[in-house]
Computed example of a mutant assay.
Amino acid sequence: MLNEAQVRPATFSQWQTTTRAPQPRLVNALADAINRAAKAAGRDLYLDPEEARRLAGFVPGPPPVTAVDVRRVIQQNENFTKSQKDALLQIIDGFEAQNTQAAEQQQPERSSPPPPD
């Protein structure tokens, strides 16, 4: 496969022993070679070239998951009745109260300053 991707064995060996990333053209060539070899072997395997570049560090990964406003999602959802929405929101209120109480219990108690002499 290295020959098909036109990668010298010494280059491949260097990749195994160093933290230096391969050149983008070699990453593309390896992805293509892997895909051709898998197809020739009748294997259901495909290495997306974009994924190969991401794994090699040339393309940033997916953006981090952002927080969702659960209350807004529930309130805007047309699949729930008003009473169902109210029940879900009450459950969320309970979770938030429990989390607040747990956080307060984890904080060290603040002592009052000593009275003046």
Results as ranks from 00 to 15, higher is better:
Arg54Ala: 09
Gly42Val: 10
Gly61Asn: 07
Gln23Ser: 11
Pro64Gly: 00
Ala97Ser: 10
Arg53Glu: 10
Glu104Ala: 15
Lys85Asn: 02
Asp93Lys: 03
Arg36Trp: 08
Lys39Asp: 13
Arg54Met: 14
Gln16Cys: 11
Gln107Thr: 10
Glu51Phe: 11
Leu45Trp: 08
Asn35Phe: 02
Leu55Asn: 01
Gln16Gly: 12
Gly57Asn: 01
Ser83Leu: 12
Trp15Ala: 07
Asn28Met: 09
Pro22Met: 11
Asp69Ala: 04
Pro60Glu: 12
Gln14Cys: 06
Ile92Leu: 15
Gln16Trp: 03
Thr81Lys: 07
Glu96Pro: 02
Ala103Thr: 10
Ala33Asn: 07
Ala40Phe: 10
Gln101Cys: 07
Asn77Thr: 12
Asn79Lys: 11
Ala52His: 07
Phe58Lys: 02
Phe95His: 11
Ala38Tyr: 04
Phe95Gly: 05
Asn35Gly: 07
Arg20His: 15
Ala56Cys: 00
Gln90Arg: 15
Pro49Trp: 06
Lys82Ala: 14
Gln106Pro: 00
Ile74Phe: 01
Gln101Pro: 03
Thr66Gly: 00
Val70Ser: 04
Gln101Leu: 13
Gln101Glu: 15
Asp48Ala: 02
Thr66Pro: 05
Ala33Trp: 07
Asp93Gln: 08
Arg71Met: 02
Gln23Arg: 14
Ala67Met: 11
Val59Arg: 13
Tyr46Lys: 08
Pro24Val: 00
Phe58Ile: 03
Lys39Phe: 13
Arg72Thr: 11
Glu50Gln: 12
Ile92Gln: 09
Phe58Cys: 03
Gln76Val: 03
Gly61Asp: 12
Ala87Ile: 06
Leu89His: 03
Ile34Met: 14
Asp48Met: 08
Thr81Trp: 04
Gln101Tyr: 12
Ala33Val: 10
Ile34Gly: 01
Ser83Gly: 05
Arg20Met: 14
Ile34Lys: 02
Glu104Trp: 02
Arg71His: 04
Ala29Glu: 04
Ile92Asn: 02
Gln101Trp: 06
Ala97Cys: 05
Leu89Pro: 00
Asp44Glu: 13
Ile34Leu: 08
Val59Ala: 05
Val65Ala: 10
Glu50Tyr: 12
Thr81Gln: 05
Ile34Asp: 00
Arg25Asn: 14
Phe95Gln: 03
Ala87Val: 02
Phe95Trp: 08
Val70Cys: 01
Ala97Asn: 14
Asp44Gly: 06
Asn79Pro: 04
Arg43Phe: 03
Thr100Ile: 09
Asp86Tyr: 00
Gly57Arg: 07
Val27Pro: 04
Lys39Ile: 08
Gln75Ile: 04
Asp86Trp: 06
Thr66Leu: 15
Glu50Asp: 13
Pro62Val: 09
Gln98Leu: 11
Thr66Asp: 10
Ala33Ile: 04
Ala33Thr: 06
Arg53Ala: 11
Lys85Val: 00
Gly61Val: 00
Arg25Gln: 12
Asn35His: 04
Gln107Ser: 06
Gln105Asp: 12
Asp93Arg: 05
Asn35Val: 01
Ala103Pro: 07
Ala38Glu: 05
Glu78Asp: 11
Ala87Gln: 01
Asn28His: 07
Phe80Glu: 09
Val68Asp: 08
Pro62Phe: 09
Gln75Met: 03
Thr18Trp: 06
Gly57His: 04
Leu45Gln: 02
Arg25Ser: 15
Val27Gln: 03
Val70Lys: 10
Arg20Thr: 15
Gln107Val: 11
Pro64Glu: 15
Ala29Phe: 08
Asn77Tyr: 07
Gln76Phe: 09
Gln14Ile: 01
Thr100Gly: 00
Asn35Asp: 05
Val68Gly: 00
Asn77Glu: 15
Arg72His: 08
Pro63Arg: 12
Arg54Tyr: 02
